[in-house]
């Protein structure tokens, strides 16, 4: 190995790698595969090679392969990651990769989870634009410098990969908790001046499943592959809901 290839993330060609892959559903076991790690191979490349070369029954999910679609997230050596943008050499520990499906979601098979509960919570958090009755009457003039626009911009690049949801302790304790992604999406809409559904949205993100249950552990912010800050979005929702509650009392 040269000095150059010993850098993290830059793999020497043809290194041996042991890949432990979760097989089964909620009950199952790890199956080990041996591969020759190629230079700059991503974790998704590793899974694809195993499926194509060694075991065609291995199930996993991917689409774009370039960090846009949010389909390929898995737990890699204990940490949820987007596997298409994660180099295997950078995260292998002692030449071992352990791959598991995302946590906090039902396992369909092997590395594929059912994302339906994740997206159902987006709906419950009113994570969709509400145009109101007279939406098309005029254009909204929104300056890029407006504080609300800046808040929305900070969270709007979420790709729905489920990494934050998998990392969230509160979801693991309270399966009803809406989770960081849905709350982050709700916060971007709270800051959208065109949206007409704010009261219903703020009601939806309050309560025992909502933003006030967040412990601010910041796992979502730590693991988000897009380096968003759902913790800060949730803090914004706490301020917005409390402000509204105080105005109602006043």
């Amino acid at each position: 190995m040269t000095a150059e290839t010993s850098k993290p993330g830059v793999a020497a060609a043809a290194e041996a790698l042991t890949v432990r892959v979760w097989r089964g559903a909620e009950s199952g076991a790890f199956q080990s595969f041996q591969i020759r790690l190629r230079a700059n191979q991503t974790v998704l490349d590793v899974v694809t090679e195993i499926q194509r070369e060694q075991d065609a029954t291995l199930s996993y999910r991917f689409a774009c392969r370039v960090g846009m679609c949010g389909s390929c997230a898995m737990v890699v050596n204990g940490r949820p990651r987007w596997t298409c943008r994660t180099r295997a050499a950078a995260v292998a520990e002692a030449d071992v990769l352990t791959l598991e499906p995302l946590r906090n979601l039902p396992i369909v098979k092997d590395l594929a989870v059912d994302m339906e509960p994740f997206f159902e919570k987006w709906r419950k958090a009113h994570g969709y634009f509400e145009p109101g009755e007279d939406a098309a009457k005029d254009f909204a003039l929104v300056s890029p410098d407006e504080p609300g626009r800046r808040e929305a911009d900070a969270g709007v690049e979420c790709i729905n990969c489920g990494v934050c949801y998998s990392a969230c302790d509160v979801v693991s304790w309270n399966p009803d908790y809406l989770g960081p992604a849905a709350l982050n999406r709700a916060w971007t809409l709270v800051n959208d001046v065109r949206d007409q559904g704010q009261d219903a949205r703020l009601d939806a993100v309050s309560g025992d499943a909502g933003c006030h249950s967040c412990h601010s552990h910041m796992s979502c912010t730590e693991f988000c592959p897009k380096t968003l800050g759902p913790t800060f979005a949730i803090a914004g929702l706490k301020r917005a809901t409390i402000g509204r509650a105080l105005r109602r009392k006043g």
Binding site: S206, G207, D208, G210, H212, S213, K238, T241, I242, R244, A245, L246
Partner: peptide, 8 residues
């Protein structure tokens, strides 16, 4: 937890 309990 609702906002009032949170604030309290």
């Amino acid at each position: 937890m609702n906002p009032v309990l949170y604030l309290a």
